[in-house]
């Protein structure tokens, strides 16, 4: 039995079935990539796994630590050890990154505003952030800014990985983390993800392009087309895709190797 099991997952959005039975096993210590063309259901997979209310699960199971997480609220999934790095992190005005991170950490530690011994101390908080912020080339001023407010595309993605580093999930889903990133940001983000890799973390990288996989080497690659996994294998699957694209599954002219680096943020 794998640590994180997706069994025949079916998800609809506004009454339309997008995921038509996805099955996938991720063990801690492994990095899996799910690749697919536009519209294949990649983002639906990541949002549904985290429990976004707009994504209606119509069938299947997702088991993690012995529970079907589909029955849990998003915050419960997170506290269980799941993490989603968003493709489009939202701007939340009025809440500083520091306050946000501290609250999230405290929630994970079971601090509900009462038992102060459970709350993270300022010193611990600082220590926890220091190394990751350095790896991601983020300075202190970032902490006093509002959540993602005025962040560049690269800063937003780096902030997602910073949160991951701080919250230390056991299963992390990285949704198109490389899209819209300049070459430096890709480097910093990959470095940070690689630093987090280890026996206590399973990673699911969701991506259209092979680019990020050059920096974060996957152990397994799955191809998602039209809501189904159509091929699974080792890193060689990504290499194949890079030459043949998704044409094999009737998808035309979608480059898999990202040629140009900037300006490809998907709308």
């Amino acid at each position: 039995m794998a640590d994180f099991e997706i069994r025949d997952l079916r998800v609809s959005v506004e009454g339309r079935e997008i995921l038509k039975g996805v099955t996938l096993d991720v063990d801690k210590g492994q990095v899996h990539a799910v690749m697919g063309p536009n519209g294949s259901g990649k983002s639906t997979l990541s949002q549904a796994l985290m429990g976004h209310p707009a994504y209606e699960v119509t069938g299947g199971e997702v088991r993690f630590k012995g529970v079907n997480v589909l029955e849990l609220a998003p915050d419960e999934r997170a506290r269980l050890g799941m993490y989603l790095a968003f493709q489009y992190p939202t701007v939340v005005p009025g809440i500083t990154m520091a306050n946000f991170l501290r609250t999230a950490l405290n929630a994970k530690r079971g601090y509900d505003g009462k038992d102060k011994t459970k709350a993270i101390t300022p010193k611990e908080f600082r220590a926890l952030l220091k190394d990751s912020m350095h790896t991601l080339r983020m300075d202190d001023s970032f902490l006093s800014r509002y959540i993602n407010d005025g962040f560049s595309g690269g800063e937003k993605k780096r902030a997602e990985i910073l949160q991951m580093a701080v919250l230390k999930p056991e299963i992390a889903i990285l949704d198109e983390t490389d899209s819209g990133l300049d070459i430096d940001s890709i480097k910093y983000v990959s470095e940070a993800v690689n630093a987090l890799r280890g026996p206590e973390l399973g990673v699911l990288i969701i991506t259209h392009y092979t680019r990020i996989l050059e920096h974060v080497k996957p152990d397994f690659v799955h191809v998602l087309v039209d809501g189904r996994i159509v091929r699974s294998g080792g890193p060689e699957v990504a290499d194949q895709l890079e030459t043949t694209g998704y044409a094999e599954w009737g998808v035309k002219e979608e480059p898999v190797a990202a040629g140009q680096l900037s300006g490809q943020e998907e709308a």
Partner: peptide
């Protein structure tokens, strides 16, 4: 709802998330 979901996805319970959002709104 995207704001709420974002905070929830980091383990912050819904009620706290809403409180933070309102508080932030008044900031």
């Amino acid at each position: 709802p995207e704001h709420v979901f974002y905070l929830e996805s980091r383990g912050i319970p819904r009620a706290s998330a809403e409180r933070m959002i309102v508080h932030g709104f008044f900031g």
